[in-house]
Every structure is written in C-alpha cells, then in structure tokens.
Design a protein around this nucleic acid. Structure first.
Length: 227
DNA sequence: GGCCAGGACACCA
DNA sequence: TGGTGTCATGGC
C-alpha cells in the first residue's frame, strides 16, 4: 500500500504531480495493482494487453492457467500454434504468441528461464536489454520492471499521455521517454508510488478520459482539484 | 455495425 | 524522424 511521503526540495512540477496523485488516491483509494498472482503472470499480461481490453486478456490468462501454460518452462515448451489458440481471446494472437515465445526464449538464453535471476542485476541495464527483445516495447518493458520486478520505472501508457496532456503537463507531441521523464525526474524513485500512480491513472481514465472532450468533470486541474 | 481497448513493429518517404 | 498500415478479439 502506498504511504504518503514528504518531498524535500520539491519543484513546481513535482508538487503538481503529487497533487494530481493525491486527488486520484483520495477518489479511488489504493488499487493494489497489477491484477496477477505471480510476477510471471504480470509479464504475460503485459504482452497480452498490448492495444487490448483487459477483459479479453483475462480470458486468455484463464485459458493459459487451465492448460498449465502459465510458467516460463511451459511456455518455452509449448508449440507456438497451440499457444496462439490459447490466447485467442486477447486478439492479435499470432503476433502475441510469437512475442511470448520470443520473451521466454530470451529468458532461458540469458537468465536461466528465471525471473528472479533476470531481476537480480541493475534494472537500468535490464531495461535496455529487455527493449531489445522483439515485442517488448517501452510500455511493456516498464510494466514488467515495475509490476513484476518492483523496480522504480514509471509506466507511461495511452491513458497517461492523454490525461497529462489534458492537464497541460506534457505535449501531445512528446514521445514515450519524454512523458516518462516528467515522472522520473520529478517524483522520488518510489516503487509503491509509481505502482499506485499508474494504476490510478488507468482507473480514472477508464471512467473519464475515453471520450472527447477529455476528462469533462475530472476535477484534477490544480484550479479545480477539490473533489 | 462501428468504435475502442493498459502497443509494437515494419515499411516508406 | 515521422506518418501509416497491420495485427484480431470481444464488449458496448
């Protein structure tokens, strides 16, 4: 659970970010993400949820559990066609089955097929390494680092960009690393904070940020932050 | 029946 | 470097 903290030498941006976080936390409470039972399930979910509704991902994960495929060893062994059929509800099943195989193949080649080994070293180096794995883009990579590995790597997704562009803290033109830098540079490297913040952004945006005009009634602007 | 969802990548100019 | 097409299912 996230515990509020006091910032020393906080900047205007850090105060704004913490203010938005406080408003979200007050509204929704602690959300205890990621919705998965094991770190490996987080990794699988992070790949399966690429451009896909989470409800569809859950169906695919149930299929994987029932087929006994929710482990690195099992995914390493299973034929890609069988894997594709199991994850069919998540959409893009041919693409995602290949990505899951690429990830576990890499995990066995480089880290003995073990996430604890993968997460044992410097996470900044791991981030660069993960980004070279085909199918692991920046959001998927940071989701794995934060939610499976408990590393303080802020996750930026479409919701984050949409909401904070709306709040005027980033530009629609900013790329992933630019948006991520806003959080990484202006918040303490706190795993619990990053975990909860991203979860709250998703929770909020599912309710308020789907349709344009964005966030009507979201009440997160500093000028109207009273909830 | 159209739109959208917690992206990533290949290809092209 | 930036824009565009592709991958696909399921809920609303």
């Amino acid at each position: 659970m996230y515990q509020p903290l006091q910032l020393e030498n906080s900047t205007g941006k850090s105060e704004e970010l913490l203010s938005v976080f406080a408003a979200l936390l007050e509204r929704y409470g602690n959300l205890h993400w990621w919705p998965a039972e094991t770190p490996f399930e987080v990794c699988v979910g992070a790949i399966l949820t690429q451009n896909t509704n989470w409800g569809n991902v859950e169906k695919a994960i149930v299929n994987l559990k029932q087929a006994g495929l929710l482990s690195a060893a099992a995914l390493h062994r299973v034929p890609v066609d069988a894997l594709a059929q199991a994850i069919r509800p998540a959409g893009f099943f041919n693409v995602k089955s290949a990505r899951l195989k690429d990830f576990v193949n890499w995990l066995f080649e480089r880290h003995d097929g073990r996430l604890d080994v993968m997460f044992a070293g410097d996470w900044h180096e791991l981030r660069e390494e993960l980004l070279k794995v085909r199918g692991i883009g920046r959001e998927t990579c940071d989701s794995i680092l934060l939610y499976a590995g408990n590393k303080p790597s802020f996750v930026v997704d479409a919701y984050t960009k949409r909401l904070f562009a709306h709040l005027g803290l980033v530009s629609e033109k900013d790329d992933y690393e630019g948006v991520r830098a806003l959080f990484m540079d202006n918040l303490p490297a706190d795993v619990a904070l990053f975990n909860e913040y991203h979860a709250l952004i998703v929770r909020h945006c599912k309710e308020h940020c789907r349709k344009r005009p964005l966030c009507s009634g979201c009440s997160l602007h500093l000028s109207c932050k009273s909830l």
